[in-house]
Design a protein around this nucleic acid. Structure first.
Lengths: 346, 346
DNA sequence: TGTTAGCACTCGAAGGCAAGGAGTGCTAAC
DNA sequence: GTTAGCACTCCTTGCCTTCGAGTGCTAACA
């Protein structure tokens, strides 16, 4: 990437800032006046023509002002934008709404967090639920409900609790159940759910069958229950916020976006691509996103964790024209708070 | 309601049918030609003018055709529409998609059903989840997880299983827990969740405290967990389907509808108003709905049940111009199947 | 050599206008 | 009571004009 003269930088910055604010193409006059460059509009016009040639700006049509290109936004995010701190008030606002209810389970906390993020940013926000597959087995219980049914409860280290009613085709004595369960707990403790493969289960099954042949049905169902949640869930907040954005005023565009929001697995893939191991915030602008349905959008994400173990990705999706600086600050603040809640909470 | 001449009925029927199909205002020519009345357009014109005066039809503007008024739709639904059976193919289609996965828990079945309903009807569909409050207590278990935490599992007769992790501020011996739990089960069995009031809980608490003073915390949390799900959930399907409807082509209308879809408690109220005890299907047209946000919509609902106990309401929401006849048939078929699945399944 | 004022030019948005067409209401004849 | 005929209404569509914001270029200026 070429280096830009100081003056070009200032002008590019001004164009980006103005366009983020107003959503209109910005002309040389506006830059000269509103941003007090100490230069005439004609000079700025020349510079803007240069910036366009270099690919940082583009013109919707000849007689309109300029808008930042994707490259322009990228330059802004990488070199021009200063990190901003939220005002005390904004920060308090986020803290307060996250504390609003005492929540005990991880899923509730997450769903709540994504709603808060959406309502603060006025954009659509998404969060990848904690990845069940990656969490490690802590303990399993089988609770006999009556002669024919039992409740399998699976608890993992990240506070995940899964349960499932299973049918048992033969009645089991509590003793027998107890035996099976403690055996399983012993064998599985500390493994990640990923590691509990079908082969491992088969092994255990063989092992157990020597002693107890009655559990076939129970096992099939246990296996099923593990396989089922193959993929973490994605929760959304503020999906209707895109309707207020001027770039989504056509019904087809809205349709495309909302249909995307209904495809959980696609959202998951998109978010997964932004998963990082460190604390950085990832900004993907326009076509930098691999899924072409959001080539006119930007996605800003961060990872959230529980005691240094990365759980998933949370982020904001909006038009490329979004207030990167502010949203990054909000996201940082919210993730910080979320991490602390999760790590202390459970 | 006045009685209409046979001829007026036929014309009204034709207008409604044509408008449902095309979404355009229908003129006298169209009625005469397409529906082979054996009358000239002029005659029909006169009749239509009468029907307008009587309030069954209305004109968007002078030189347009007529569209059915709300009163017109009502008359159609009450007197003109014949009940239709689905074709074998359609019926099979519904059956097949409902059987697609073997589902064990009531919530999954319901969520799946509402999706199927939406995709078949190409409208938005909603279902009120089984009302936790109305189901009766079957059994409760407390599963100690470690010294500090326990898992409360609550099982009701409609197959509802609720669980919640609680913190215990003092360690409990399994014996002690066992005692409390069996006492509670004995006292609460067969009561509806509604009936488990705070006062009853307090009574039990007092009773128990004489013996075990350590459980205060556990009790507070149990109470909380009961209170929490005050209101059944509402699940939606095909929310984006309204975007394909010509009556929702303006962004503001879409916005209003989608915002409504985010307000679960409002949806619940709307559905609750349609709850009946019998097997009838309820049709609310336009302003017959109390919530004014859907005064341009119609809502068709049925109740679903498990072994003759009403669980909740399932329905279709769409523009007043919808194919009542067909949608009622679909709904009937689906609810029938759903009831059987629920009653046999668990 | 860089900056600025001036000016012609471009192009979209908005408004007005006429033509076209679907449908009506009325009247008079059957 | 029914129908053909006709004038009338009013929306839709396309076309044209005007308006204005903004540009690029040129020539003059510091």
């Amino acid at each position: 990437m070429e280096t830009l003269s100081e003056r070009k930088k200032r002008i590019l910055h001004a164009v980006v800032a103005s366009h983020i604010k107003t959503a209109d193409p910005v002309g040389s006059r506006t830059v000269a006046r509103t941003y007090r460059m100490g230069l005439s509009s004609a000079t700025i016009r020349n510079e803007m023509a240069d910036l366009e040639e270099m690919g940082y700006l583009e013109q919707p049509h000849t007689s309109a002002g300029r808008i930042p290109s994707q490259k322009g936004y990228r330059y802004y995010v990488d070199h021009l934008m200063t990190e901003s701190k939220l005002s005390e008030e904004e920060e308090l606002n986020i803290y307060r709404s996250l504390n609003a209810e005492k929540m005990r389970e991880i899923e509730q906390i997450i769903v709540h967090a994504v709603k808060v993020l959406a309502s603060v940013t006025k954009q659509t926000s998404l969060i990848m639920g904690p990845q069940f597959q990656k969490s490690t087995f802590q303990q399993m219980r089988i609770l006999p409900l009556d002669e024919k049914r039992g409740l399998v409860v699976l608890i993992t280290d990240s506070g995940f609790i899964k349960n499932k009613v299973i049918k048992l085709n033969q009645s089991l004595s509590p003793m027998e159940l107890q035996q099976v369960v403690s055996y399983l707990n012993q064998k599985l403790y500390g493994l990640s759910i990923d590691q509990v493969t079908t082969t491992l289960i088969n092994e255990l099954k063989r092992d157990l069958f020597r002693r107890l042949e009655i559990l076939e049905q129970a096992f099939i169902l246990l296996e099923e229950s593990l396989r089922e949640e193959q993929q973490a869930r994605v929760y959304l907040g503020g999906t209707t916020n895109i309707l207020s954005q001027p770039e989504f005023k056509s019904v087809e565009k809205i349709h495309r976006m909302l249909s995307l929001f209904e495809q959980e697995s696609l959202l998951f893939e998109i978010l997964e691509k932004n998963l990082t191991e460190d604390d950085s915030i990832v900004v993907k602008i326009g076509t930098e996103n691999e899924y072409e349905g959001i080539h006119e959008c930007s996605l800003i994400t961060a990872t959230y964790k529980i005691k240094d173990r990365v759980l998933g990705t949370i982020g904001v999706l909006g038009p490329t024209r979004m207030d990167y600086r502010w949203i990054i600050a909000v996201l940082r603040c919210l993730v910080d708070k979320l991490n602390r809640t999760l790590s202390s909470g459970l």
